[in-house]
Design a protein around this nucleic acid. Structure first.
Lengths: 339, 339
DNA sequence: CTGAAAGCGCTTACAG
DNA sequence: CTGAAAGCGCTTACAG
């Protein structure tokens, strides 16, 4: 079936296509009678404007991109991304924006596609996630001038618009929870693969310092946010006999739990642990994971709203948003005392 | 910075914009010398055509949609979707297509957006996933004429193009594996929420029939693919004393494992289990899960290729593709015998 | 308040 | 083989 055009709607309503366009775009100064007549034809015919023609004429596509750099491909199966996408689509649906997803499988692909994202004019703006240090995508978008928002704290300084969670406070809260339960040999599994990992390590250190606990370097191990890396890191920590571990992500905590169990130790009796994220799997861990809840969906929806404001030239909202986190106490540390 | 246009490239190369367009689109009959001259200007300037203008003129956007109906929202955090998206983007990146993601949070939103997907002309085609019975999205797309491919077996009959896995054979394989290990009270946790669930139940029944095992109705429980539902279903099965369970998804199997453990039974000694999916969590289950591997990424990439062929009017490939599955033997049933 | 007209940046018959 | 011109379906100054 042939799609209707503005002209045809105009004919049917006895007005010009300009008037129909104005009715559709809620231009204020239109005679009520005319508006009604046009509206009726639109409803009857089910007419919807061709968004591509509209984009070309208005220089606005109402399409925004979600960019996930290639080094995040391996962690893309984490439940973090589906949650984030749920938050993002919640806002895009509400604002009538279309979301395009850019997921790269290699650095070469990323570079090639970055060029075309920036130069073909399809997008009104992009959300860049999976914050990593010295993000080349951020710097090229910045140079180009395309509106964007980063999810997470960008490595680059300056007034880059971003939406982040309070990783420092969260990690500090988690670590102090361990200390409050009488633990003194508090270890950590940290990550240096992004700024979130860095900030969480800072919070961990803050807590120790507040309680005058000196950090034994043997109580620090590294992971890359994968379950396997948590498993290995925990095995490295065990000889140093920690009685508690703050782990920078729930997925790594799942791996750590297994290492602890395999060593014949009990959680939390021998080793108490606290994770970070509070994604679905943390409830299904055994024992259930005490963790820091970060509002992932809210990060997604907030990022869209912020980007939309930037695209529309509205800057009343702060361009750098840090969302609060919350300690969720479960069996892996402290639920017997607090529940 | 102002973006260049075809006209400007033409000026720089001393040809008309029509010629530049032909060079870019690999029109064959161009004097090599001219082609080279134009090519050089394009390279030097880094020119890339405005995709929106191109879409309007050519009536092709090179954008395809991935539609995930609202009743799949709750299972969207399953690792199934990230894997599928990885497969899809693998092909879209390779074919230079842009992927738009449509995820709905309510039926109302779904209906509203479906209309605009179909009527605004943005997409060249859609991939519809999360097969559910009587998919209203499929029927409206079908009526409208927009090219589409379903992932999974659609409920509607007819020659609807789809990419599916061999659920029947997979379930049969899994169940026969249980039987081959001497189990006779073989239960199942099935699901009726989509055709995959139905087909897997058929495979389960086939296996029993092949071995002349009568199905005790108390050995059938229902789930909805969530971990919780697997947990509850397993609790319902336990009084009937199964010595084996075929579970229609790994996520439900994780829940079932917990129920079995909590009942003080051992896996596989008391109850052997086999799941379906082989997504990452199945390796991290305790014990590791014997399961049926479905090539999720391949489904995604195949769906894109099929859709691309349909959009381009190429029909040499079969429009209905069923990918093979594979039994992966681990500790939850049989690895001691086969490894 | 409304219409005629120009223009967004491409593609593609139509001539030559 | 190449160019001039029409056209894709909208938006939006500019007049009136």
């Amino acid at each position: 079936m042939k799609r209707l055009t503005l002209d045809e709607i105009g004919h049917l309503a006895g007005v010009s296509r300009a008037t129909v366009s104005r009715v559709i775009n809620n231009y204020p100064h239109i005679t009520p009678e005319v508006r009604e007549r046009v509206q009726k034809v639109i409803t009857q015919t089910g007419y919807q404007p061709n968004v591509i023609a509209r984009s070309l004429a208005s220089n606005r596509s109402t399409i925004i991109g979600l960019v996930i750099p290639s080094d995040a491909l391996t962690i893309f199966t984490d439940p973090y991304f589906p949650s984030l996408i749920q938050g993002i689509t919640q806002s895009t649906n509400q604002l009538n924006l279309t979301l395009s997803l850019f997921l790269f499988h290699s650095m070469e692909e990323e570079i090639r596609t970055a060029r075309s994202i920036l130069n073909t004019g399809l997008l009104d703006g992009v959300i860049i996630t999976a914050d990593r240090r010295e993000d080349s995508f951020v710097s090229s978008v910045l140079k180009h001038g395309l509106p964007f928002v980063v999810i997470g704290r960008p490595e680059l300084v300056g007034d880059i618009p971003f939406v982040n969670v309070d990783n420092v406070s969260g990690a500090q809260l988690a670590t102090e929870h361990l200390i409050a339960h009488g633990r003194r040999r508090v270890a950590t599994i940290r990550s240096v693969s992004n700024t979130a990992g860095e900030d969480r390590f800072i919070g961990f250190q803050n807590a120790l310092r507040n309680h005058s606990i000196k950090l034994d370097p043997r109580l620090v191990a590294y992971g890359d946010f994968s379950l396997e890396s948590g498993y290995v890191a925990m095995q490295q920590l065990l000889p140093a006999k920690p009685d508690a571990v703050f782990i920078a992500s729930d997925t790594m905590a799942l791996g750590a739990q297994r290492a602890i169990r395999e060593a014949g130790l009990r959680i939390p009796d021998d080793v108490a642990i606290v994770g970070f994220d509070d994604l679905p799997p943390s409830v299904h861990a055994e024992p259930q994971l005490t963790t820091v809840r970060q509002p992932v969906r809210q990060m997604g929806s907030t990022a869209v709203e912020l980007l939309n404001n930037i695209v529309n030239g509205i800057h009343d909202s702060p361009a750098q948003i840090i969302l609060p986190v919350e300690l969720i106490v479960r069996a892996s540390c402290g639920s017997e005392h607090t529940n």
